[in-house]
């Protein structure tokens, strides 16, 4: 495997640009890195420098990228507050990237504007990894979700997967649903009427031959599924706060709801959670969201090692 797959120098901007084989290849590389002896791992990216350009705050993603890089022996430079950078002086994103590319080997970028990571990748020959561009893409999140599903269930193909919460604005579920279309999964979408999966995504899934159904209650599907993917209803995405108040407490997963679920059912959540999953669920064997967030490290390490050519 991997004869034709070569990530060296390549930017990772969107899950839509990755084929099934490439996705599997990244997941296998993540597994290989997890199993690697400490000494070898800690020198894998020795001498390499990553720019960590966070144009909007995101503690989780930033720390995960930075930790992934430093634990492989690489170094990180960058900023986490655009107000302290030259960006605040009116420098364009293009110029910022042109300047930064001289200092580093790879660039991780997060930006509130959709398409910013693509523009960054056009400004430089160095590989750019998208750490989230507005409501558009966050490919390493999708990859770590897939990696988590595989780890939890031993496979991805043929699983029954429910996604619950804000399916309208939630970029995580959009990307994950499209990525899962490679793996012949049965999908269940649970949301209030006002936060349903956008018609375009449903049409795209149908076109790809994905079996799915839409639901309004968690109870309708939770006993059937292998993975229950909960998401936060994001206040900041609502143009109308009254609308947010109406739906914010609709889906709360409690321990009592897990009485009849499959023994191996696992609950995922991209975090941070507000109240979607009660604390009582954390102690059940079904809770898997903290493992999920830990998986961000090997997956981002795989991406960085591949685009830097340290692993093939």
């Amino acid at each position: 495997m991997g004869g034709k797959i070569n990530f060296r120098g390549r930017s990772i901007i969107s899950i839509n640009n990755l084929s099934k084989e490439e996705i599997i290849y990244i997941l296998e590389t993540a597994k290989k890195i997890e199993a690697m002896p400490f000494k070898k791992k800690s020198e894998l990216l020795k001498g390499k420098v990553m720019a960590s350009l966070f144009f909007e705050p995101s503690t989780r993603t930033r720390l995960s990228f930075n930790s992934a890089m430093t634990r492989l022996g690489g170094r990180v430079i960058g900023f986490s507050d655009p107000m302290t950078s030259s960006f605040a002086k009116g420098e364009t994103l293009y110029d910022t990237i042109k300047m930064v590319e001289n200092y580093v080997d790879v660039i991780a970028i997060r930006h509130p504007i959709e398409g910013a990571a693509r523009l960054a990748s056009e400004a430089t020959e160095k590989p750019v990894v998208n750490g989230g561009d507005g409501a558009n893409q966050h490919p390493t999140q999708t990859l770590l979700d897939l990696y988590t599903i595989k780890k939890a269930q031993g496979k991805i193909s043929g699983l029954k997967i429910a996604m619950c919460g804000d399916l309208k604005y939630g970029r995580t579920v959009h990307s994950l649903a499209i990525a899962l279309s490679h793996f012949n999964c049965r999908l269940y979408f649970i949301s209030p009427e006002s936060l349903k999966m956008p018609a375009y995504y449903l049409a795209e899934l149908s076109k790809r031959g994905v079996m799915f159904s839409e639901h309004e209650k968690i109870e309708e599907v939770i006993d059937e599924v292998d993975i229950f993917y909960s998401t936060r209803i994001q206040k900041e995405r609502f143009p109308d706060h009254a609308e947010y108040e109406k739906v914010k407490d609709v889906y709360i997963l409690t321990k009592e709801m897990l009485n009849k679920v499959k023994k191996n059912m696992r609950i995922m959540h991209p975090l941070p959670r507000v109240n979607e999953i009660t604390l009582s669920v954390d102690s059940t064997p079904h809770a898997y969201y903290f493992q999920q967030s830990a998986n961000g490290i090997p997956v981002r390490q795989a991406v960085l090692s591949l685009v830097l050519g340290a692993l093939k």
């Binding site: 994103l93 293009y94 509130p112 398409g115 910013a116 507005g134 409501a135």
Partner: peptide, 12 residues
């Protein structure tokens, strides 16, 4: 048409 697209925020 997306006002939050990078092409609407930069001259490009």
């Amino acid at each position: 048409p997306n006002p939050n697209c990078i092409t609407r925020n930069y001259d490009m």
